[in-house]
Lab assay of single mutants.
Amino acid sequence: MSIQHFRVALIPFFAAFCLPVFAHPETLVKVKDAEDQLGARVGYIELDLNSGKILESFRPEERFPMMSTFKVLLCGAVLSRVDAGQEQLGRRIHYSQNDLVEYSPVTEKHLTDGMTVRELCSAAITMSDNTAANLLLTTIGGPKELTAFLHNMGDHVTRLDRWEPELNEAIPNDERDTTMPAAMATTLRKLLTGELLTLASRQQLIDWMEADKVAGPLLRSALPAGWFIADKSGAGERGSRGIIAALGPDGKPSRIVVIYTTGSQATMDERNRQIAEIGASLIKHW
């Protein structure tokens, strides 16, 4: 067993022997301040990774656009098919120029040779490549099948209805392509620590998230040296922004954090800054 596999296998073990965790309302004060600064709703939840206990939450059962955070769930569904012998990570998928959609920095470079399922998941999570996500959605049967996968996990809230990039439209009061912070946090925890996926697939999923290259201005910008984070960000229309993450000190994750916002007129930089400040408060009061 590799060191990384050992780390993920012992996530519940280490967490069980940690000192009790206590909620700190100071972080919620910052979440509410972010709402004021952005002029928009902000949803927040913080779960203990081992027990699933909610440590703090704000608007945990209000719907927010998922945006690209759905790509972690998508690759979880792909990995479940791999575990069941219905898919192979090494299978190569070929596609054409007509398949390319807006923001496809990886797939646009491989029109000639195609990409493997493993490479597509890596591109979808680490670079948020939209064509990679659409190609992977095709392998599982489309958005409705991802929703069905989530329902089978016990998540009857999260739903995907459309493809990239239309799913980022974020129309107010439109339930399409949305989740709730509580539902997303619980589902992410199941994917990373539950028995739904094999140990190898859980490790692969967290490795992809740990290698995320496009979430630097968010929670990662607030992390002290030595902290662990595996995350996936999302951005959408109407001032929408979000991030889902597993993080913790001492090089291992111990909490799940989900943050979503929508309806702001603020710039992307300002949305990023507010999420980073929430992260800084979380870490300060850990």
Rank of each mutant, 00 (worst) to 15 (best):
L137R: 01
T69G: 02
H110T: 05
I3G: 06
V106P: 01
D155G: 01
I283D: 01
G141T: 05
Q86T: 12
A84I: 12
G194L: 09
S254F: 08
L146C: 05
V257T: 06
D155H: 01
D177I: 01
A280E: 15
S80G: 11
E119S: 09
I140F: 06
F58K: 07
E169D: 13
L135V: 10
P249L: 06
L150H: 04
L120Q: 02
R238H: 14
I11F: 12
Y95I: 11
I275E: 01
V101D: 14
E145A: 14
A34C: 10
T131M: 05
E62R: 06
T126K: 07
G141F: 04
T198V: 07
S122E: 15
D231W: 03
A84H: 12
P60G: 15
D250L: 12
T116A: 07
L196D: 11
L146D: 00
E270T: 14
H156E: 10
V101C: 10
L19R: 08
A266M: 13
Q4S: 14
D161V: 07
D48N: 08
R202V: 08
A230Y: 03
C121E: 01
A77W: 06
T112A: 13
L282N: 03
H151V: 13
L89S: 06
E56T: 11
T126W: 04
L218H: 03
L89F: 08
R7I: 10
N168K: 02
S201C: 07
R189L: 10
H24L: 10
A77N: 13
L188I: 13
T69L: 02
D36Q: 13
T112D: 15
M184W: 01
E35T: 03
G239W: 01
G239A: 04
M66Q: 06
K252E: 14
G39N: 13
Q204K: 10
L196V: 14
T138G: 13
S201R: 06
F70H: 08
A230T: 02
G236H: 02
A40M: 09
P172F: 09
T147A: 07
P143A: 07
G236M: 02
L49H: 05
R92H: 10
L199K: 11
D113I: 08
G85F: 06
L136H: 01
S51C: 05
E270I: 13
I244C: 09
V82D: 05
T179Y: 00
E164M: 00
T69C: 06
T158A: 05
E56F: 04
L135T: 07
N130K: 00
N272K: 02
N98F: 15
S221N: 11
S128N: 00
S240H: 06
R59F: 03
L19P: 10
G76T: 07
P25K: 10
F70L: 05
A84F: 09
G76Q: 01
T158E: 00
F64V: 04
R241T: 05
M67G: 13
Y103Q: 04
R118I: 09
I171N: 15
N173D: 14
T187G: 08
I278G: 00
H151W: 15
D161W: 02
N173T: 14
K30W: 05
P25A: 06
V117L: 11
T193F: 10
F17R: 05
A148I: 13
M180N: 13
G239L: 01
S122H: 12
D212P: 05
D99H: 08
A148S: 15
K144D: 14
N50Y: 13
D83Y: 02
L218D: 03
L74N: 01
L10R: 05
D212I: 02
D250C: 12
H5M: 15
L79T: 02
A148L: 14
M115Q: 07
G141M: 06
L73W: 03
T139I: 14
V78L: 09
N130S: 05
I259Q: 01
H151L: 14
A222N: 15
D212G: 06
M209S: 02
Q265G: 13
A185L: 02
P20I: 02
I256F: 06
R176I: 05
K284S: 14
R81P: 00
D33Q: 15
S104F: 02
L137H: 03
M153I: 14
S122V: 12
K284C: 09
A77L: 11
W227S: 02
D269M: 11
S201I: 02
I93P: 02
E195L: 04
H285F: 15
Q86N: 11
A77K: 11
L191N: 02
Q86H: 13
V157P: 02
L160Y: 02
L55M: 15
K30N: 07
D129I: 00
E277A: 11
D250H: 14
K53T: 14
F13G: 07
A132V: 00
N173V: 10
G141A: 06
N173Q: 15
M127I: 09
A230M: 07
G226D: 11
P12G: 12
S281I: 13
L223C: 13
S221P: 09
L137C: 06
A246H: 04
R92K: 12
R202D: 03
F64K: 01
W227R: 00
S104E: 01
R92E: 08
E195Y: 07
G194S: 14
Y95S: 02
P172Q: 12
K213V: 11
P12A: 13
K144E: 15
L74E: 04
R41P: 10
R271Y: 03
P181F: 00
W286C: 01
I54W: 08
K232M: 00
E169K: 13
S264A: 08
D161A: 06
R63S: 08
G114R: 03
L197R: 05
T187K: 01
K144P: 10
V258R: 00
F13V: 11
V257G: 01
G239E: 01
D177N: 04
V82T: 09
A230W: 03
R189A: 14
V42N: 04
L247Y: 03
I206D: 04
K53N: 14
P20G: 06
V257P: 00
L135Q: 07
E56W: 05
H151N: 15
W227L: 01
R241N: 04
A185D: 00
L146T: 04
S104L: 01
D177A: 02
P224E: 06
A123H: 03
L196A: 15
G251L: 09
V31T: 06
R238S: 11
G216A: 10
T267Y: 07
F149D: 05
S57H: 13
I256M: 07
L55K: 08
A185R: 00
F22E: 15
I93M: 03
A16G: 15
F13E: 02
C75A: 12
P181H: 00
L223R: 05
I229F: 04
A133T: 12
A266C: 13
L205T: 03
T138D: 12
D113V: 09
G52F: 05
I140G: 04
G236A: 10
D155Q: 02
K109T: 12
L219I: 14
V117G: 02
V8Q: 13
D129M: 00
I93D: 02
R91D: 06
D83A: 05
R241C: 04
L137K: 01
A185G: 13
D207L: 12
I259S: 01
G114V: 03
E26T: 13
A183G: 07
A124D: 01
P172L: 12
P65T: 03
T107G: 05
V31L: 11
T193L: 11
L47R: 03
R220P: 02
R176K: 15
A170T: 08
Q203G: 12
D177T: 01
P60E: 15
T179D: 00
L191C: 07
T158L: 01
A124K: 00
P60D: 15
L188Q: 03
P249D: 07
A148C: 14
S240N: 07
M184L: 07
F13W: 11
L100Q: 05
G85S: 10
L49D: 02
L223G: 03
F22W: 14
Q203I: 11
S104T: 06
L199H: 13
L19S: 15
H156L: 12
D174E: 08
L47A: 09
A230Q: 02
A40C: 08
V214A: 08
H110C: 08
R91F: 05
I206C: 14
I229G: 02
H151I: 10
A280P: 01
I283E: 04
T112V: 13
V8C: 13
A133P: 02
L205A: 03
R92M: 10
D48C: 07
